[in-house]
């Protein structure tokens, strides 16, 4: 399994909110174990989709200057189980952001039905705080391009985001 739990961003407003989508497909191997003949999208992986949506929103807001890692799931709750054929839509907003960390809130919906909600807390680590570099610049940019952040992203004033020149 690869580690991509959102397929693309649909909305991305720097420092404010982002919407990403994730299709649930039987082509994904893990669904054949969870559960055999009765595929349900694991809620732990939905937390990851939420964390990728919110984490990229936060990392962009601090200009990728620190290493953003999920430090705490303050609370997560799920109301039903997503199944193959569903499109999960994650909406993330930044509740609070300081240099050392951020608190975000993310919802997950399927066809406008609320599937889950979570409060996710990210630590923003500097070099020397126990975490080596996570990505080479081009590895990170490849992911951001794949997520279409610079196709659809806007800053607070509505201007298109500039694709960084790393």
């Amino acid at each position: 399994m690869r580690w991509f739990w959102i397929d693309r961003f649909d909305e991305f407003v720097r420092g404010r909110h982002a919407v990403a989508v994730k299709n649930v497909s039987l082509a994904e191997e893990h669904l054949h174990d969870h559960f055999p003949g009765a595929a349900l999208m694991p809620n732990s992986l939905i937390v990851e989709g939420m964390a990728q949506t919110a984490g990229l929103l936060v990392a962009d807001a601090i200009d990728y200057n620190r290493r953003v890692v999920l430090a705490k799931v303050a609370a997560a709750e799920f109301h039903f189980d997503a199944v193959p054929g569903d499109t999960l839509r994650f909406k993330a907003e930044i509740l609070d952001l300081k240099p050392a960390g951020s608190l975000t809130k993310v919802s997950s919906t399927v066809d406008d039905r609320l599937q889950g909600e979570a409060e996710l807390f990210f630590a923003h680590l500097e070099p020397g705080e126990g975490v080596p570099k996570l990505f080479e610049p081009d590895e990170l940019l490849k992911w951001l391009d794949q997520m279409h952040i610079y196709d659809i992203g806007r800053d607070e004033s509505g201007q298109p985001l500039q694709r960084p020149d790393w």
């Binding site: 809620n43 999920l70 799931v73 997560a76 799920f78």
Partner: peptide
């Protein structure tokens, strides 16, 4: 019960990698 799934999580804290 055939299906046992995570319904909610509180205060999942990560200390070490």
């Amino acid at each position: 019960h055939a299906i046992v799934v995570l319904r909610s999580a509180k205060n999942v804290k990560y200390g070490d990698f």
